[in-house]
């Protein structure tokens, strides 16, 4: 049930999780006629890194108490992502609902989110480390800049401290680093930080009664500016390598491949 913002609500953390709906991983994608974007008649799912961000928020809440709020921007279909999050245990949801949100660049998405939550006082904002469609990996960092909060990216572990939090950042080549920072703060969460849970039947039932706040384009359009970058053309990448395709029955393919491994690759 929703925890009211009363005396009991001086809980440790109020966490906002930014989530995105993206085309399903296996969905065959087609280009639109102008070759500027994909055709939108595909199946969608939650952006996987965001699922880890949500899971981490739920675990923090279970450990320390608090509230988990989920937010997304997109057309009506994007509500599914919020419904699933509520079923898994998020307390309430914010849906910036309009087709126009899909075409925003990362800076504008961050601006729209910041405008939509200005009445809320969050301690932490989580995002997945990047999205599976654009792959820009920017919304979290930009949101921190807009809010004037510190941030850290690619987080593998979060500890509560008296002065704020201590987080484990993943660096390249197998290195890690601990960083301390005060709250409020923004963290982008690395996939694999935890094990994802499934929604329970009770959770799915309860989700129907949890608050879902709709934010319209007009509510936040004042905060949104011109996109600073534009996808001019989307296309199937050109092959740079000569690839040899092996065909036939599985047994034939296996024979051909072993032949190549022996005579060309020379590893057998």
């Amino acid at each position: 049930m929703l925890r009211p913002n009363g005396p009991v609500a001086r809980c440790w953390v109020k966490i906002l999780v930014c989530m995105k709906q993206v085309p399903q991983k296996d969905a065959p994608l087609k280009l639109n006629e102008g070759g500027t974007w994909i055709r939108e008649d595909v199946s969608y799912e939650v952006n996987e890194p965001d699922a880890y961000a949500l899971e981490e928020a739920l675990r923090q809440k279970e450990k320390h108490g608090g509230e988990v709020v989920v937010i997304t921007a997109g057309p009506a279909r994007a509500q599914q992502v919020l419904r699933e999050a509520l079923a898994k245990g998020a307390d309430r949801a914010i849906h910036l609902e309009d087709d126009r949100f899909v075409g925003l660049d990362a800076f504008n998405v961050a601006r729209a989110f910041a405008a939509a939550i200005k009445e809320d006082a969050f301690d932490l904002i989580f995002t997945g480390l990047q999205s599976d469609d654009y792959g820009y990996a920017q919304t979290g960092v930009l949101l921190a800049e807009l809010m004037g909060w510190p941030h850290a990216t690619i987080i593998m572990q979060i500890e509560k401290k008296d002065s704020g939090i201590r987080v484990k950042r993943e660096l390249e080549a197998g290195f890690f680093q601990f960083v301390e920072m005060p709250l409020p703060a923004v963290l982008t969460i690395q996939s694999g930080i935890n094990k994802l849970r499934y929604a329970t039947l009770i959770g799915i039932k309860q989700a129907k009664n949890k608050p879902m706040r709709k934010v319209s384009w007009d509510d936040v359009s004042g905060a949104v500016g011109e996109n600073l970058q534009k996808v001019e053309k989307l296309y199937v990448p050109q092959k740079t390598k000569k690839t040899e395709y092996l065909e036939g029955s599985p047994a034939e393919v296996a024979k051909k491949l072993v032949d190549k491994l022996r005579n060309e690759v020379r590893v057998l």
């Binding site: 990448p237 740079t240 690839t243 296996a254 072993v258 057998l268």
Partner: peptide
């Protein structure tokens, strides 16, 4: 497949078992 030298479009569960057998045979013969 864009960076593959050799490509097999197919179900790996069909292809890998005979591949293991072929590799073993090749090794045994070598």
């Amino acid at each position: 497949f864009e960076i593959a030298d050799i490509a097999v479009v197919g179900n790996l569960f069909d292809i890998v078992p005979p591949l293991i057998e072929e590799v073993k045979k090749a090794k045994a013969g070598a």
